[in-house]
Amino acid sequence: MEVFSESYLEDVVENQGKLFEYAEEHCPGIDVTDFIEAYMKSHTRALIDAGQAYISTMDAEDLFNYFLKNDKYEPRQGTAAGGFAPNWIGQFYALFQWIYKMSSKEVVKLLPVEFMFEAYPGLHDLDLQVAVYKVGEQCGLNAS
């Protein structure tokens, strides 16, 4: 799969982390696991995978509103995750998608959100790229 230009990468990674964090802060009691999974499988995220500049450069709040409107997502009630995990997972997923040239839909299928929350304590202290490579290696993937 062709990935978007590297010149967008830093912003996409940062904004996805902020998006997941924003969802939890903006909707107290939201099932953030459901939100993250729905977002990663969404048409909105697929547009970013495809390098659509308008979506790729949105900040977290705009992206949140765009996703809710265009994918008709309704936040569900659940247990709050709290802490920095949602932000870190957002960044991890974004970088993983780009490095391994997979669709975001495939990424969340390969690395379910529940797994990411379990893996967070052991991985989040690492440099993000190192963490991505570690997990990718475990999955038998090669970064080209």
Binding site: F4, S7, G51, A53, Y54, T57
Partner: peptide, 12 residues
């Protein structure tokens, strides 16, 4: 629009 943004961003 996408192409123009990409070219500008890569140059920056």
């Amino acid at each position: 629009y996408t192409e123009r943004d990409r070219v500008a961003r890569e140059a920056m």
